[in-house]
Computed example of a mutant assay.
Amino acid sequence: MIEMVIEQRRRSLGGGLEVGRVLPFAKRRMVGPFIFFDHMGPLDVAAGADRSLDVRPHPHIGLSTVTYLFSGEIMHRDSVGSEQAIRPREVNWMTAGSGITHSERFEKARASGDHLHGIQAWVALPTADEETAPSFSHHAGADLPHWNDGGVAGHLIAGSAYGLTAAARTHSPLFYAHLDMEPGATAEVPAGHPERALYVATGAVEVDGARYDAGKMLVLGADVSALRAVERSAVMLLGGEPVGERYLYWNFVSSSHDRLAQAAEDWKAGRMKLPDADDQEFIPLPDAPLPTPAKA
């Protein structure tokens, strides 16, 4: 059975860039360790676009960000010295741990135009790893196992599924995959995880005899084992072991509300190092005082 259907809510990030916010949702804050899920674009950007499209340097703690593109290019720079463009079917995996800052610049789009479309997810770290040293890794090609079977072209982004394991280091059991499905094709939903979901990025799918169109996340019961593409579709499958309740404020995730407050104060006071190659501007802490956030 389908436990819940979550429809994306459109949000503007400025500069004409819109995202479809899926997680967190008021009635379902997390799926396994996945605490945040944004569908970026699709957006056509003309050459010469304003720099307001960029995401200026900002901080994170207690999570890993996972960026995956269907099309376009984003330049990542961070405070551990990374400078890495991400392109379609590649993964930028950034573990914030005790604290990291990064920017996401659309330099190619501004220079020559681009079609931007992708997904950014956040994975909450287990309590024992929340203060791990920050790190960054980029993955492409053989790092992301892929397969073709019966009209389904699959890419494993992270974790283990379908008898395969992706290269990015994860801190808890999870899976995250992208399936391109031809009309009428069927695909297995990985089992063996207590929480699972699928997100229809494009097209439409059928699960348990019902049709679900693009922009919807289906939180799946244990009995759901397959899906069928009604038309050509791009589908994200995700899930894993829950890591426990989490507080979420702005770009910070933690099992401790006090730790969130400390991170907010550190950013406001300028105690978090900016990216080495992008340290001339930053996104300020939101004007509103730190609330007592609902637990994720």
Rank of each mutant, 00 (worst) to 15 (best):
M1W: 06
I2K: 08
E3D: 10
E3H: 10
V5I: 12
G15F: 00
G16I: 03
L17M: 02
E18Q: 09
E18W: 06
L23A: 01
P24Q: 00
A26E: 15
K27A: 13
G32P: 00
F34I: 10
I35S: 14
F36L: 07
F36G: 10
F37C: 00
H39R: 13
M40N: 09
M40P: 02
L43Q: 03
V45D: 05
A46F: 08
A47G: 11
A49K: 01
V55R: 04
R56A: 12
P57S: 09
H58L: 01
S64Y: 03
T67K: 10
M75L: 13
D78Q: 02
S79D: 11
Q84R: 13
A85R: 13
R87Y: 13
P88L: 04
P88N: 05
V91N: 03
V91M: 04
G97K: 03
T101V: 05
F106P: 01
E107Q: 14
K108A: 08
A109G: 08
A111T: 08
S112L: 03
G113V: 00
H117I: 01
H117F: 04
T127P: 14
D129M: 07
D129N: 15
P134C: 02
H138W: 09
H139R: 08
H139G: 01
A140N: 12
A142L: 09
A142V: 12
D143Y: 14
L144N: 10
L144I: 10
P145N: 06
H146T: 11
N148E: 15
N148D: 13
A153T: 14
G154Y: 04
H155I: 09
H155P: 12
L156I: 05
S160H: 07
S160V: 07
L164H: 15
L164E: 14
A167C: 07
R169S: 14
P173C: 06
L174T: 02
A177T: 12
H178S: 13
H178F: 08
L179S: 06
G184N: 08
E188T: 12
V189G: 11
P190D: 07
A191M: 11
A197M: 11
L198R: 11
A201V: 05
T202H: 08
G203F: 02
V205C: 02
E206W: 04
G209Q: 01
G209M: 00
R211Y: 04
A214S: 07
L218I: 07
G221V: 10
G221R: 01
V224F: 01
L227P: 03
R228S: 11
L237K: 01
G240N: 10
E241F: 02
E241T: 15
V243G: 06
E245L: 08
E245G: 15
R246F: 04
W250Q: 06
W250E: 03
N251G: 05
V253A: 14
S255Y: 09
H257T: 11
H257D: 14
W267Y: 11
W267V: 11
K268T: 15
G270A: 12
R271F: 03
L274M: 13
P275H: 11
A277C: 07
D278K: 09
E281Q: 12
L285R: 15
P289L: 02
L290H: 15
P291C: 04
P291E: 05
A294S: 14
K295N: 05
A296F: 06
